[in-house]
Simulated assay, not measured.
Amino acid sequence: MSAHSGGSRPHPVVAVVGPTGSGKSELAVRLAQRIGGEIINADAMQFYRGMDIGTAKILPGDRGGIDHHLLDILDVTDEASVSAYQRQARTTIDEIASRGAVPILVGGSGLYVRSALDVLEFPGTSPEIRASLEEELARHGTTQLRERLARVDPASADRVQDDRRLVRALEVFEVTGKPFSSFMPRRQYHQPAVQIGLDVDRAELRQRLAGRVDRMVAAGLEQEVARLAQHGLRQGKTASRALGYAQFLQVLDGTLSLEAATTDTVAATRKFARRQRTWFSADPRIEWLPWKAPDLVEQSVQHITRTLES
Rank of each mutant, 00 (worst) to 15 (best):
G110N: 04
V113I: 12
V113C: 10
R114E: 06
R114M: 08
L117W: 01
L120K: 02
L120S: 00
L120M: 13
E121W: 08
F122M: 04
T125W: 04
T125Q: 10
S126D: 12
P127K: 10
P127D: 05
R130S: 07
R130M: 13
A131C: 12
S132M: 14
S132C: 13
S132T: 15
S132K: 15
L133V: 14
E135T: 15
E136Y: 13
E136F: 10
L137G: 08
L137T: 09
R139M: 13
T143S: 13
T143P: 10
Q144C: 07
R146V: 00
E147W: 06
R148Y: 05
A150N: 08
D153V: 05
D153K: 02
P154S: 01
P154C: 03
S156Q: 08
D158H: 09
R159L: 13
Q161S: 13
D163L: 07
R164K: 15
R165P: 06
A169G: 05
A169P: 03
L170F: 11
L170I: 11
E171I: 06
V172A: 02
V172H: 04
F173D: 02
E174A: 14
T176C: 02
G177A: 03
F180K: 04
M184A: 14
M184W: 15
Y189L: 03
Q191L: 02
A193V: 00
A193D: 01
Q195Y: 05
L198T: 00
D199Q: 15
R202S: 11
R202P: 11
A203F: 12
A203C: 09
R208N: 06
R208Y: 02
L209A: 00
A210H: 09
R212N: 13
M216D: 01
V217P: 02
E224V: 04
Q230S: 12
H231P: 01
G232C: 06
L233D: 01
R234C: 08
K237D: 13
A239R: 06
A239D: 03
S240R: 14
A242N: 13
L243N: 15
A246H: 15
Q247G: 09
F248C: 02
F248K: 05
L249C: 05
V251P: 06
D253V: 03
G254P: 07
T255D: 11
